[in-house]
Design a protein around this nucleic acid. Structure first.
Lengths: 340, 340
DNA sequence: GTGAAAGCGCTAACAC
DNA sequence: GTGTTAGCGCTTTCAC
């Protein structure tokens, strides 16, 4: 059984409303856009005509004439599948969507096409959106940095490449969060601290590794072994295995993401290594992976949903020409559970 | 430290490209849109001019003239927060985004505003999108059903209200899936089967309850106690508690979602009721809640990501005037784990 | 195969 | 406060 699209009769135009209300198109436009310079009578007549006709303004025409689309893009890097499975990204999107729902802006999800990288840039420069949100990504984010000259852009997480002085960035202090986490391990008597670091081509990965090292060196200790993962549970399990295979003992472990820590905890348990008795574990991210870990994970919370709302807020301000801070650092805090 | 948007010089227009390439605007338009009716020379000249100028077509103008936006909306019902935390919705979005990334269409996320319900409809009718995807929602989805007269619409999950014969729907057979699950319990010797049903104002909730009942009646058994939840873990835990408080014994439990089953399993464990020894549990959804359940949950898998891709595919076909099936039923299958 | 001309439906000066 | 007049940058007949 098949069907074809219904032939819809032409939608009523602003001109039709004007005729019906007995006013000019300008007046209709003013009413639709909430201008105060309209008499109550005129406004009433227009509103009635709009209701009777079921008029809805044509967005493309409005956008063409006003040079504003009232829409912003959220650029999704790389594979979509990994994106939505990651509670970090889900929370960011939630914060963005939620903030925009209370604004006149609409959210466009732009999946960066691997097959045609130029497509995203072309879209962004075609005026389809008034600005774009770029999520922290791998070091190939140069093209986005360059886009900042063409339209308002806000980065969530600092780009790894050199960026314009005018770039607007919202981030947490990854170095400081990692340092605090590691210091917590040290304060609990741990002396030989390993780390499962994040990808070293992303700012969050690099900075968290630096924070771990800084805490250790500042305490006069020697760094434990380092293995790198890509923030996912699979990578965490693999990294822990490699850590153990190196045969270097450690009594503390700092993981750059809760997803990796959660999987590491599973591997430790499987090998009969008790947490926190034999090894204390701490990580960054207070998501479901931290909560559901066995034992529940002590971790640094980053306000992800709030960060999503913040980047949306910043972008809207940028678009509307209001002053914005160039760099916003969201606060993190320690959540004590049972893994240290 | 604050900054203001950079004053960007005007973007090059199609006309500028035409001048530079020494052709008319029509020819440039043809090249940009891949028309075959252009000589190789003309095409080369135009492409060079485009590259030199860094031209990107203005989307609003194109959309106004062609009456196509090459963009589709995914309408998100109710609270955004619940939406992104739900693996079902995340998978749907993933499927949609992934399919569209390989098409010339862009995805707009439309959060149905609770404060201004008309806003969504106005947007959809303003030509900002060529069609819309409506996710199964509560019974107040009447307004979306009506929209189908104005633009191409595809429903994921059948609407509970009467809908146009032309409505395009992609769904699973909820009744059959629930029946199969319940029959599996019966085949394993369970005779007194309770259920934690889904919301009774949603098709998935209603149909799954019907399937459960049908299997029981067909087997000549008496139905066990029923409690209703809203698909969330919290609702599952509460429903199980109520089920137990009723004092009616049961040796089998069918839950309408894995999220509810997962939480119910936790509650059963807490009370020392062994699964599957004392009670067998089965549910619908093969998501992380099913996998991570203790014990791992035997469940009916629905191909959620594929369903997302399917609704996107159907909508694009509808928009492009190609024939589409009015109703597509995605296959479900039993995943045997350890809870029965 | 190519160009000229006529809009697409709206906003934004500007005059009244 | 209201109407008139130009476009916004593109697609699309329709001649040639």
């Amino acid at each position: 059984m098949t069907t074809r699209p219904s032939a819809d009769r032409a939608a009523p135009t602003l001109e039709a409303v004007a005729e019906r209300a007995g006013v000019s198109r300008s007046t209709v436009s003013r009413v639709v856009n909430g201008s105060p310079k309209v008499t109550d009578e005129a406004r009433a007549a227009v509103e009635r005509a709009i209701a009777e006709l079921g008029y809805a303004p044509n967005l493309a025409a409005r956008s063409l004439a006003s040079r504003r689309s009232h829409s912003i893009a959220l650029v999704i890097p790389e594979a979509t599948s990994r994106f939505f499975a990651d509670p970090y990204f889900a929370a960011i999107v939630e914060g963005v969507a939620d903030h925009l729902a209370r604004s006149p802006y609409t959210l466009t999800l732009l999946v960066a096409s691997e097959t045609d990288p130029g497509r995203t840039a072309r879209y962004l420069r075609g005026g389809g959106v008034d600005g774009a949100l770029i999520l922290s990504t791998h070091s190939d984010d140069r093209s986005y940095v360059e886009l900042a000259g063409h339209l308002p852009i806000v980065f969530s997480g600092r780009p790894t490449v050199a960026h314009d002085e005018n770039a607007v960035i919202v981030d947490i202090d990854n170095t400081s969060a990692a340092r605090t986490a590691t210091e917590y391990l040290i304060a609990h008597g741990r002396r030989r601290i390993a780390t499962i670091a994040g990808p070293q081509d992303m700012a969050a990965g690099i900075d968290r590794l630096a924070g771990w090292l800084d805490a250790i060196v500042s305490a006069g200790l020697d760094p434990g072994p380092i293995e790198v993962g890509d923030f996912t549970p699979e990578a965490g399990a693999a990294a822990l295995t490699r850590l153990l295979e190196r045969g270097e003992a450690f009594d503390g472990l700092f993981a750059a993401s809760a997803q990796m820590a959660n999987a590491a905890l599973v591997e430790l348990g499987r090998r009969g290594i008790a947490v926190p008795r034999d090894v204390s574990v701490i990580a960054i991210d207070n998501d479901r992976f931290a909560e559901e870990a066995q034992p529940p994970l002590t971790t640094m919370e980053q306000p992800t949903t709030e960060q999503g709302a913040k980047i949306a807020e910043m972008l809207v301000r940028l678009i509307e020409g209001r002053p914005v801070e160039r760099k916003t650092i969201m606060a993190t805090r320690l959540i004590e559970r049972a893994s240290v």
